[in-house]
Design a protein around this nucleic acid. Sequence first.
DNA 1: AAATAAATTTGTAATAATTACAATTTTAAA
DNA 2: TTTAAAATTGTAATTATTACAAATTTATTT
Lengths: 140, 140
Amino acid sequence: MNNKIIEHLCNYGVKPSLHRIAVMTYLMEHKTHPTVDMIYTDLNPSIPTLSKTTVYNTLKLLVDQGAVNSLNIDEKNVRYDGDIFRHSHFRCKSCGKIFDLPAGSIPALEPSLPSGFSLVETQVYYKGYCKDCIPEIPAS
Amino acid sequence: MNNKIIEHLCNYGVKPSLHRIAVMTYLMEHKTHPTVDMIYTDLNPSIPTLSKTTVYNTLKLLVDQGAVNSLNIDEKNVRYDGDIFRHSHFRCKSCGKIFDLPAGSIPALEPSLPSGFSLVETQVYYKGYCKDCIPEIPAS
DNA sequence: AAATAAATTTGTAATAATTACAATTTTAAA
DNA sequence: TTTAAAATTGTAATTATTACAAATTTATTT
């Protein structure tokens, strides 16, 4: 069952060390768009030899190689997403949870960039209130 | 000429103090999507009594009241935009400059949110290389 | 105008995310 | 087995942001 993960890492030119497999597996199994800290805190008990710096290093590598996406939908921390299929995200302004939205919510057409510009990536972030938090919209 | 600014602040329920006028004016005149630090560094010489905390406070107030937009297009710092007309942004991955794009590059349709969700804002960030930086795409 | 209250601003200290980096450990190659 | 390369660690440094109490400014009331 690790094979899938190892293959994925190799496909993106990442040599599959134990820690890298652990982080990648975590991201595959937890579709919560976790922060560095969440990943570290959750993995550390079972992998006591894991340091937070390694989590940072590993995520940087995975993102650089395109095996993982990073999101700036949360002003405080970078969020990581092991799902690199084209989709977008919704973040609840009250509880902070991040939800996946289908690819349909991404602009279909390329933006009209000034001539000579080249587009590499498009990020679409939706924010609002999720089902559980709607009643408690903060007083203005 | 300050009248425009004062009126704008009042329209958004911000009492126009000297510092607030200065920050708002700066954002109106500098379409560079500056950071807190840029604003503070540029204004401080002419307004020596201005503190960085006040710039933070003021921007928080302006954003909360809807008189200014904040962007998370830059992983490092929050960027501020005095232009609240609907438009989107492109950030050059090499030089870091942020360019305005017309509103047309924003998804026209509401995303298909899960039922019971309410949408408050949509952020669209494009990233790539600007005209001046295209030749120097980093080696992979 | 003086006294009082409210709002604004300041400056410093605390918090927290991230990066730098040298030392150590692990893995691969000769 | 020795040597070299890669991966990981742990600590320290950096940096953006927030907390907060004190000081200042502005508005209100007497």
